[in-house]
Amino acid sequence: MLTIIFFLSSGLFLGWSLGANDAANIFGTAVGTKMIKFKTAALICSIFIILGAVVSGAGASHTLGKLGAVNQLAGAFIVALAAAITVMWMTKAGLPVSTSQAIVGAIIGWNFFSQTATSMSSLYKIIGTWVFSPILSALFAFLFFHITKRIVEKSRIHLMRLDSYTRIGLLIVGAFGSYSLGANNIGNVMGVFINSSPFKDISIEGLFHLSSIQQLFLLGGIAIAFGVFTYSKKVMMTVGSGIFKLSPVTALVVVLASSITLFLFASQGLHDLLTSLHLPAFPLVPVSSSQAVVGSVMGISLAKGGRNINYKKLSQISMGWVATPLASAILAYVALFFMQNVFMQSVFQ
């Protein structure tokens, strides 16, 4: 049992890193504009991330499984650990990097070490979402900004009432975004352990059923929640005020745009519906909430004429996105070598 806990600890560490970085971005704009207190945001974010992970987390994790099926518990431990350490480095620098990119890089590192072929179709699909998701989020933000601006101007709502409505909207949309993030990104945290899960399905008199995968995702969701509470505030402030100064209303638009983007890539139901109607469906791929939020912030700034953008901060974030998968892949490869040749643990079959 202690061995199992030890090997799963890297996944929990990665969950903590995701909570400290990616998950924080859901409420980053709200906290950055001081519309919502950090503790309130962290509580709501944590609850709905856990719900999303357990209820709807299976869909996006399959794509990572196709990229590389890590088939030994020790190997999964190293893959998750390499991704977590990479994200932690970036988080300490205050940069909203992508946990999705970190885990993909680590899986590719495992593929190289185990001489397993990388599914290029899955890799292209994942990389495509890295490019497309911030663009889509920016388009949503651009559109919602102009719609919101027109509504506010025509309604002539009192400033105090607008402020109250905005706070409520941020809470509701943030909860929706947190659920979508849990459903979409839990595969990053615990997906590599699915093929070597140590748990058994739990069923109580047919009334309650929790699969082994859901148990993994529950643990991962709790780890994410812990990361949100303990280490996310710095990244929240970077996203909320570091790239472009946001007003409370534009903060709401940013959260809404990024939340919808995450939902589109997480919803199995929407995917099945579009497929049944013979329409193009969004791939079920873990996407980066950081990229979605940054894309939304850029969409707002462009809607306002592109003025006052902190290009230095934006370039630093972009460099982090490029460096993350490379660093994670190299770290995973080196760590796998030590695990197998020094600690004599089999990391692949």
Rank of each mutant, 00 (worst) to 15 (best):
G221V: 03
L162G: 14
I78V: 15
I194D: 03
G206F: 08
A303W: 12
I300R: 03
S211Y: 07
I50M: 13
P248R: 04
L218Q: 05
F193E: 01
L331D: 04
L18P: 03
G174F: 13
Q340S: 14
G94C: 03
I47T: 12
N71A: 08
A257Y: 01
T118S: 13
I202F: 15
N185G: 11
V342G: 04
Q215P: 00
L210R: 02
W130F: 15
L8Q: 03
A42E: 08
F77Q: 12
S318F: 15
F226S: 11
I44T: 13
S232H: 05
R161I: 14
L162H: 00
I107K: 08
T63Y: 01
V192Y: 06
I300G: 01
G220A: 07
I213K: 11
K234E: 08
I243M: 10
F265Y: 15
L274Q: 14
A76Y: 04
K233M: 11
H62L: 13
S100E: 03
Y231I: 02
H146I: 03
S155C: 12
Q72W: 00
I36C: 03
A281S: 15
P325H: 11
G220M: 05
C45H: 04
L12A: 14
G68L: 03
M339E: 02
Y333C: 00
K234C: 02
A20F: 02
F142K: 07
G65I: 04
I36K: 02
V297T: 09
F229I: 10
S121N: 13
G227D: 12
A225R: 04
I26V: 15
W89K: 05
K200L: 12
S122N: 06
K245P: 00
